[in-house]
């Protein structure tokens, strides 16, 4: 539900408040909260409005009314929540230059990947380093200071454009899996040119922010052999996009499942409708 629907009497200027919050000035909100808190009524208060009638209104009406009266509090909480999420993403993707200088590029990347709850594999080794269910990991990877990393799996993690900086300089990275990453967008894909000669397999399926404009940037990955673009929700004509991608990356095997690729779906439905209409048209003269 949109907040404006709940509070119709809200003055038109008020979106500004949230704007200030977004601009990184949350203290203005605390002031608002303080002001609202003085006059806010407890949950049972709305019931008094109906005190003249014998029965009180149903619970959900009371709850909505309560939320209406606490409009700024709700707005503040929602704003705080989104700000917190944004900061978490930022923090998790921050670049650890200290570790990179002291322990080397590979160790820094290994730690970065594990902190994002991903997994990786060193060159020449078969077993993967991964986190357990509780997000804990062993520090054995510190023993492989000079081994480059070959495969990185960051599926369903919070990696974003900033985080890609930690992966920079990995000349032997062959496989990158970014399945279901909510923060991976077109700018991320454009930045992947840093692996333009090494990257062979890329999985970007289920990423909600990727559009055709970003897929065009994959032209720089000339070593790509395998590309998974299944179930990208923001691609409007997947059949055409797959054909264009195959044309752009001739040596690459492209996987695109999860799309409805039947070209004649709409026309079939139209024909059905026409047939049905025809049937009814035929019937009407008979009925007369």
């Amino acid at each position: 539900m949109r907040l404006h629907d709940v509070c119709p009497s809200r003055p038109a200027v008020e979106p500004v408040m949230s704007a200030h919050f977004m601009a990184g000035q949350p203290w203005r909100f605390y002031r608002t909260l303080h002001r609202c808190g003085k006059h806010s009524a407890p949950l049972w208060a709305p019931a008094r409005l109906w005190s003249s009638s014998s029965e009180s209104p149903p619970l959900h009406t009371r709850a909505l009314l309560f939320l209406t009266q606490r409009f700024y509090d709700v707005e503040l909480l929602m704003g705080l929540n989104s700000e917190l999420k944004r900061r978490t993403v930022q923090w998790k993707n921050s670049y650890n230059s200290y570790a990179r200088q002291r322990l080397g590029m590979n160790i820094a990347l290994a730690h970065f990947v594990l902190r994002l709850k991903g997994g990786f594999r060193y060159v020449g080794q078969d077993d993967w380093f991964r986190v357990d269910k509780r997000g804990k990991f062993s520090w054995d990877f510190l023993n492989h200071k000079n081994t480059p990393i070959e495969e990185v799996d960051l599926s369903h993690s919070l990696i974003n454009f900033t985080g890609l900086q930690s992966l920079e300089g990995q000349q032997s990275l062959r496989t990158l899996s970014l399945r279901g990453c909510s923060q991976v967008d077109d700018w991320f894909l454009a930045r992947l040119h840093i692996f333009q000669n090494s990257l062979e397999e890329l999985n970007i399926s289920d990423c909600p922010q990727i559009t055709v404009g970003g897929l065009a940037a994959l032209r720089n990955l000339r070593g790509l052999r395998y590309l998974d673009i299944s179930s990208l929700p923001r691609i409007s004509s997947p059949g055409l996009v797959v054909i264009l991608l195959e044309e752009m990356l001739p040596q690459c095997h492209i996987v695109a499942t999860g799309y409805d690729l039947s070209m004649f779906q709409d026309t079939v439905e139209d024909e059905k409708e026409i047939k049905e209409q025809g049937k009814t048209d035929n019937r009407t003269p008979g009925m007369q």
Binding site: R2, L3, H4, P15, M17, S18, A19, M22, E75, G79, D186, W187, T211, G213
Partner: peptide, 11 residues
């Protein structure tokens, strides 16, 4: 802008 659609630049 709060409660509005995000800007889609179609970049």
């Amino acid at each position: 802008v709060y409660n509005e659609d995000p800007v889609d630049l179609q970049f």
